[in-house]
Write a protein that binds this DNA or RNA. Structure first.
Lengths: 131, 131
DNA sequence: ATAATAACGATAATCATTATTATTTAATGA
DNA sequence: TCATTAAATAATAATGATTATCGTTATTAT
């Protein structure tokens, strides 16, 4: 009936659900296995559109390509400086902690917080043993 | 004995102190006024070195050049969605709160946190009254 | 069905950043 | 001091990620 999105876009969405915080290139490589004629530009175009529409989160890291996250729920990211993996905090961060944080920010800046982008950097358990 | 830096690097450091979260290009343009022969590559090289040495913070945002912050003390940024102003929390965020955050992140992800990038979005006091 | 609109694939262009290289400046030390 | 070595520079080429263009194809509306 109503095919809301193109076949390419649906495959990109499926790839996002399968892969873990992929880059555009990783999405491209994944989709290309079953759909070789897709173009990298199409992947970028759709990812950018989806990010603008709020269907996907675009994450930016220094000296690294952007990554995309289909989980648009409230959560933070922790990046390992050793292996580069990105971990989700999901909703395991105590909500009461975030509330306190918002209050502290409002007191310090006057901003009543509506959204947060929090990226933590450090070493994962695996990399800590080898450093 | 204190380490001596090149004239170029000292000018870059001075620019960082003057400008507010500048990009490399903005540092370049500022230094160039009084020191026209400096090269953009020199700016990038020094900024990267300083970031690696922990003398400067490198901030990354989607679809925008990296920004550099000479305030390496623990602080966050809060952006107003109304007027666009950016507020620093400086060190007014309770350290004990950040420690708790780090612990929660490590428990959730395994990452032992070394650095955080926290950007808050919301409405400042002025804009809240007019919205 | 036909016209209008949107999305596509291929590829060129752009932008930020890093690497190269020849040269200059600073440090070392006999 | 003067020569030697090391480090940093300016200029510029190269790279990598992302966006823009453009002719074509697919989808939607009349």
């Amino acid at each position: 009936m109503s095919k809301r999105f193109s076949a390419q876009r649906e495959r990109i969405q499926a790839a996002l659900a399968t892969l873990d915080h992929p880059t555009a290139a990783q999405v491209y490589d994944h989709v290309r296995i079953a759909y070789p004629q897709i173009s990298l530009g199409t992947v970028y175009r759709n990812l950018s559109t989806m990010a603008a529409e709020g269907q996907v989160l675009r994450l930016s890291f220094p000296s690294a390509p952007d990554r995309f996250d289909c989980n648009t729920a409230e959560h933070c990211h922790a990046a390992c400086q050793g292996c580069g993996r990105i971990f989700d905090t999901d909703d395991t961060l105590p909500a009461q902690l975030l509330t306190q944080l918002d209050a502290a920010v409002e007191q310090a800046t006057g901003i009543r917080v509506e959204a947060r982008v929090m990226l933590f950097r450090g070493w994962c358990a695996d990399c800590r043993t080898t450093h």
